[in-house]
Nucleic acid binder design. Structure first.
Length: 887
RNA sequence: GCCCGGGUGGUGUAACUGGUAGGCACGGGGGACUUAAAAUCCCCUUCCGUACGGAGUGCGGGUUCGAUUCCCGCCCCGGGCACCA
C-alpha cells in the first residue's frame, strides 16, 4: 500500500481535534506569536483556492513558530454581516443568521480538511450577539469621546472645554456643541446614494460600486459619521514603523492625502465682514490669482450671487446636485470644465484689485474650504477653466533654468522662481512659499495649514443585516445612548428585508422593537460591514469574555498581531478603518500599542484559465467569446510552444489567465483537489507555485508534481508493501549526513523569510539525493526530515513521525538545528576564466592562498590552451570562487 | 498624466553583499520494468552550430577583470492614484 493521503489526513485531523493540539493559552513563560488571516465572509460558494494560498502560508508560519518555541495564537472566524447574506435571505425567505450558520459550517469543515492548525475554541462570528455587543460598545465609546487636538488623544466628552458664549446660550447649546465634537456624530450632508441597492456608500466604496455598474448619486441624508479625520496625521505618521508592503503604505498615504499649504482670506466686494477662505498649496502664486471658484454647495453661494446672475447660479447648483459621480468622473477625464459667474467680486488681498467669483463643480466642497483662488497660469484645471471662460492668465512663476514658457498656451505647474510678484520676486518656489506665508501671517491675511484628502467615515447603512446602533432618539431629535449594561441591542426579526414604503431602513418595520419607554425611538440604521472586522483581531485574544471586550492583561500578552496575511483589496478600507479604531482604543487605554498589525503580507491571486479566440470576438450579446479547459485540446508545435484548439471546431485559441470568478467559469474547487490528491498536496502545490506575494496560474499538472514529491517522501520511510523500512540508527553515511544538514540550514532560512517555494525545492532535492545515494535513509535523518516537512505537509509528517516510533504529535517538537561544521568543505570548485569567459574549473583546497590558486590554475590544461602563450595583463583571484586571467 | 511593482527556457519559478545563469518543478523527448497499459524509476531538454565554438536574463548604452544584480535612456506588462487646489 503506497501513499494514501485520504487515510493519513483523516487520521491526523481526528487526532488534532481529539487532543486539542492547537489550543492556545496565555503562558507568560513563553514568547508569543500572533499570526492572523483576514477572516473570510462565509459565502455560499464555499472556500476557493485563493483562500487556501494565504491560509496555508499562515499555517506554515504558525506551525513553524510553535516548533521554534513560541506560544502561537492562530485563530479563525467569520465576518458574517453584509449584503450577500441579506439578499440570499430575501430570495430564499430564510433568516440570514440561519444561512450563515450553514455557510460558516461549510467553511469550517473545508478548513479542517486542509489541516490548518487553528485554535477552534476561539472561533468568532461578527453576527453573534455576544460579539456585536462589543462592536456596539466600542461605537458607544466613540460617541462618548471627543478628540483633543492639543493633547492628540481622545478624551471623555464631559471634559470638552465649553466656550463661555456657548455656556451662556444654555443647555441646548452646550449639548449641540458637544454633539458637534463627538468621535461618532450625526451629520446631514450629501452622501453617496446607490439607488439600486438603496444604501449609502462610504467614499472608499464608491469606486468599486461604480465599477460594478451601479449608479451612485449625491443626495443629502442624515447619517452617522466617525471622525477618522482627527486621526489623519497619526494614521500617516505611524505607517513609518510598520513592516508592510510598500504599495499598501503608498495606498494609505495616498488615501490620507496630506498636503501642506496656506489658508488665505479674500474680502468680498459689497459684503463687509464676509470673507472667502481658500486653501492653496501654492501661496507663492497668489499674485497670479485672477478669479475665484466656489464649490456649488458652498454656503456663501446663496448670499453673494448678484441679482442678475441669481437664476443662472441656482440652475447650475441644481444641475450639479443631480449629476451622478460617474458623470462627473467622465467629464473630469475629458477635462471639461463647467461653471457660472456669481456676479460677485473678491478683492485681491495684496493688489486690492477685484476679481470675479465663479461657481464650478471642479471645486469640491469636501476638500479644503470648498473654495479656491484660481491661478490659471500654474494650474491645469484653472487653465482649462480660464480658457473656457476667456479669463486672464498671469504668469507669476518662471522656470528656474531653461527656456521661457508660454502660460497662455499651457499651465506651468512646476517649481521655478517667482516673477511679477513684488514681495517675492526672484525667489525659488520653496522659499517663495515660506516668505509669502510669513507675509500673510504678518498682515493677518492667512495662515499655514495642512489639509487631508481623507474624509470622515460615513458609518450608517440602510440595511437589515448589520449591527444595530446602540442609540435612540427623543421626540425632539436629541440622541440618547442605550446603557452599556443593556447591550447588546439585538437585531429584531422583521417581516420584510426591504426598506419601508416611506424609504426608511428595514428595521423601521420592527415597530415594537423600535419603541422604547419615554417616547424614545431606536435608531433604525445599521453599521456597515466593516464594523465587525475593525476589532476582531482583539476579540480573538479573549473571545469568551462576557464582561469586557477583552481583558487588558490578555491583550497585553497576545497583541499586536505579528503577522497578518490577506488580499491587497483591503488596503484602503479594512486596514485603514481598523487602524483608526485601534488608535481610539489606544487613547482610551484598552490596547497597549498604537498599531494593530506589525507585519503585513498580501498574497497574490491564483489565476484560472479560459481560452479565447485569436480575434477576441464577442458573441451576439456583446460578451467575449471564451472556452473552458475541457473544451480545448492542447498540443505543441515544433518549437515547443503550446497550441490550443477548440475540440469541436478545431479553431485556434489562446490561453488567458484571469482572477477566478464564477461568471468566467474558471474556478477551481479545493474540495475536489483534496479528494483527488490530498490536503498536503494542495498545500505544497500552492506554496510551490512561486513567491506568496505574486499571482500565479493554477495548473493541475503542477499539482500532480507535488503529489509525486510527497509520494517519494513517503517511500523514504515505507517500502512498496507499505511496511516501515528497516532503518539504521543515526544520520546515515557522511554524505547523507551532510545533505541532511544542508537541507536543515536551507529550509530553516527559507521558511524564516517566507520563501516557501524555495524551501520546498530544497526538500525535493533532499528526497531525490537520498534516494540516489542507494542507501536507505537513517532513522535520525528521517525524523529530522519529518520535522522539516511538518509545517508544509503536516499530515504526512505526523504519519512519518509516528511510524518512527513516537506516540505524540510532532507539533511541539523543537525545530531541527543544523551542524555548521558539516557544511564547511575543505575543497571548493575554482572556476577558471580567461578574458572574463568561463573556460573550465578545478577542485582546490579551501586553505590555498591566492598565489597557490593562481599557480594551480596556470598549470591547468584549459588555461594553457586559452592563454595560448599570452601573458595575462592582470589576474583576479576571488578565493572560494574563481580566478580570471585578463588578456 | 503621476506613483509603485515586474520583464530570466515551451511554462511556473531559482540564483547570498557584483563572481559558474538556468537549481526545483511542469511540459516535451528517449529508455528501463510490464504480455500490454497505468503507476514507478533512469537519462536528455536555453538557443544557433556536425563539431572546435558562439550567443544569451525586455531593448540600447555605460561602469567593472567580471553585470540577471549597479548607473543612464527607452519599450512592454501588472497594480495604485487621478478635478484633492
Amino acid at each position: 500500500m503506497g501513499y494514501d493521503p485520504q487515510a493519513i489526513e483523516a487520521r491526523w485531523q481526528a487526532y488534532w481535534e481529539e487532543h486539542q493540539t492547537f489550543r492556545a493559552e496565555v503562558d507568560l513563560e513563553k514568547p508569543k506569536y500572533y499570526v492572523l488571516d483576514m477572516f473570510p465572509y462565509p459565502s455560499g460558494n464555499g472556500l476557493h483556492v485563493g483562500h487556501v494560498e494565504g491560509y496555508t502560508a499562515t499555517d506554515i508560519v504558525a506551525r513553524y513558530k510553535r516548533m521554534r518555541g513560541f506560544n502561537v495564537l492562530h485563530p479563525m472566524g467569520w465576518d458574517a454581516f453584509g449584503l450577500p447574506a441579506e439578499r440570499h435571505a430575501m430570495k430564499s425567505g430564510r433568516h440570514p443568521a440561519e444561512v450563515i450558520v450553514e455557510t460558516s459550517g461549510n467553511f469550517r469543515s473545508q478548513l479542517k480538511r486542509l489541516g490548518f492548525s487553528y485554535d477552534w475554541t476561539r472561533e468568532i462570528n461578527t453576527t453573534d450577539p455576544g460579539y456585536y455587543k462589543w462592536t456596539q460598545w466600542i461605537f458607544l465609546q466613540m460617541w462618548k469621546h471627543y478628540y483633543d487636538r492639543e493633547a492628540k488623544t481622545a478624551k471623555p466628552i464631559e471634559e470638552l472645554p465649553i466656550p463661555a458664549s456657548v455656556r451662556d446660550a444654555g443647555d441646548d447649546a452646550v449639548a449641540a456643541y458637544r454633539d458637534g465634537r463627538r468621535l461618532a456624530y450625526l451629520n446631514e450632508a450629501p452622501v453617496n446614494w446607490c439607488p439600486a441597492l438603496r444604501i449609502v456608500l462610504a467614499n472608499e466604496e464608491v469606486a468599486e460600486h461604480v465599477e460594478q455598474g451601479y449608479e451612485v448619486i449625491r443626495r443629502p441624508m442624515k447619517q452617522w459619521m466617525l471622525r477618522i479625520t482627527e486621526y489623519a496625521d497619526r494614521l500617516l505618521e505611524d505607517l513609518e514603523g510598520l513592516d508592510w508592503p510598500s504599495h499598501v503604505l503608498e495606498i494609505q498615504r495616498n488615501w490620507v492625502g496630506r498636503s501642506e499649504g496656506a489658508q488665505i482670506a479674500f474680502a468680498i466686494e459689497g459684503h463687509e465682514g464676509a470673507t472667502l477662505e481658500v486653501f492653496t498649496t501654492r501661496p507663492d502664486t497668489l499674485y497670479g490669482a485672477t478669479y475665484m471658484v466656489l464649490a456649488p454647495e458652498h454656503p456663501l453661494v446663496a448670499t453673494i450671487a448678484s441679482s442678475t446672475q441669481k437664476a443662472d447660479v441656482d440652475a447650475y447648483v441644481k444641475q450639479t446636485s443631480l449629476r451622478t459621480e460617474r458623470d462627473r468622473q467622465a467629464a473630469s477625464a475629458e477635462g471639461i470644465k463647467t461653471g457660472v459667474d456669481t456676479g460677485a467680486r473678491a478683492i485681491h488681498p495684496l493688489t486690492g484689485e477685484t476679481i470675479p467669483i465663479f461657481i464650478a463643480d471642479y471645486v469640491l466642497m469636501g476638500y479644503g474650504t470648498g473654495a479656491i483662488m484660481a491661478v490659471p497660469a500654474h494650474d491645469e484645471r484653472d487653465h482649462a477653466f480660464a480658457k473656457a471662460k476667456s479669463l486672464s492668465i498671469v504668469q507669476v512663476v518662471a522656470p528656474a533654468k531653461g527656456d521661457a514658457v508660454d502660460v497662455q498656451e499651457a499651465a506651468f505647474v512646476g517649481m521655478g522662481k517667482a516673477v511679477n510678484s513684488p514681495i517675492i520676486d526672484g525667489l525659488p518656489t520653496a522659499e517663495a512659499k515660506a516668505k509669502m506665508i510669513e507675509h500673510l501671517v504678518e498682515k493677518e491675511l492667512g495662515v499655514a495649514t495642512i489639509n487631508y484628502k481623507l474624509r470622515d467615515w460615513l458609518f450608517s447603512r440602510q440595511r437589515y443585516w448589520g449591527e444595530p446602533f446602540p442609540l435612540a432618539y427623543a421626540q425632539d431629535g436629541t440622541v440618547s445612548p442605550i446603557p452599556e449594561d443593556a447591550l447588546p441591542v439585538e437585531l429584531p426579526s422583521v417581516p420584510d428585508y426591504n426598506p419601508s414604503e416611506e424609504g426608511e431602513p428595514p428595521l423601521a418595520r420592527a415597530t415594537q422593537w423600535r419603541e422604547l419607554p419615554g417616547g424614545l425611538k431606536r435608531e433604525v440604521n445599521t453599521m456597515p460591514q466593516w464594523a465587525g472586522s475593525c476589532w476582531y483581531y482583539l476579540r480573538f485574544a479573549d473571545p469568551g469574555n462576557a464582561d469586557a471586550p477583552w481583558a487588558k492583561d490578555i491583550e497585553r500578552y497576545w497583541l499586536p498581531v505579528d503577522l497578518y496575511v490577506g488580499g491587497v483589496e483591503h488596503a484602503a478600507t479594512h486596514l485603514l478603518y481598523s487602524r483608526f479604531w485601534h488608535k481610539v482604543l489606544y487613547d482610551l487605554g484598552w490596547v497597549h500599542t498604537a498599531e494593530p498589525f506589525e507585519r503585513l503580507v498580501n498574497q497574490g491571486m491564483i489565476l484560472g484559465a479560459t481560452y479565447v479566440p485569436l480575434d477576441k470576438r464577442r458573441d451576439d450579446d456583446g460578451k467575449k467569446v471564451s472556452f473552458l479547459h475541457e473544451q480545448v485540446d492542447i498540443t505543441e508545435d515544433d518549437k515547443g510552444s503550446e497550441v490550443c484548439t477548440v475540440k469541436e471546431t478545431g479553431e485556434r485559441v489562446e490561453v488567458q489567465w484571469d482572477k477566478m470568478s464564477k461568471s468566467k467559469g474558471n474556478v477551481v474547487n479545493p474540495d475536489e483537489v483534496v479528494s483527488e490528491y490530498g490536503a498536503d498536496a494542495i498545500r505544497v502545490y500552492e506554496m510551490f507555485m512561486g513567491p506568496l506575494e505574486q499571482s500565479a496560474p493554477w495548473q493541475t499538472t503542477g499539482l500532480a508534481g507535488t503529489h509525486r514529491f510527497l509520494q517519494r517522501a513517503h517511500r523514504l520511510v515505507w517500502d512498496e508493501a507499505g511496511a516501515v523500512r528497516d532503518m539504521p540508527e543515526g544520520e546515515g553515511t557522511p554524505r547523507q549526513r551532510k545533505l541532511l544538514h544542508k537541507t536543515i540550514a536551507e529550509v530553516t532560512e527559507r521558511t524564516d523569510r517566507m520563501g516557501f517555494n524555495t524551501a520546498i525545492a530544497s526538500m525535493m532535492v533532499f528526497v531525490r539525493d537520498i534516494q540516489a545515494e542507494g542507501e536507505p535513509i537513517a532513522r535520525g535523518a528521517a525524523e529530522q526530515f519529518a520535522l522539516l516537512l511538518a509545517p508544509y505537509a503536516p499530515h504526512l509528517a505526523e504519519e512519518m513521525w509516528s511510524a518512527l516510533g513516537h506516540s505524540d504529535t510532532l507539533t511541539y517538537e523543537p525545530w531541527p538545528a543544523h551542524e555548521p561544521s558539516l557544511l564547511v568543505d575543505d575543497t571548493f570548485t575554482l572556476v577558471l576564466q580567461v578574458g572574463g569567459k568561463r573556460r573550465g574549473e578545478l577542485v582546490a583546497p579551501k586553505s590555498a592562498s591566492k598565489e597557490e590558486l593562481e599557480a594551480m590554475a596556470r598549470e591547468s590544461d584549459v588555461v594553457i590552451k586559452w592563454l595560448d602563450g599570452r601573458t595575462p595583463r592582470r589576474v583576479i583571484v576571488v578565493p572560494g570562487r574563481l580566478i580570471n586571467f585578463v588578456v
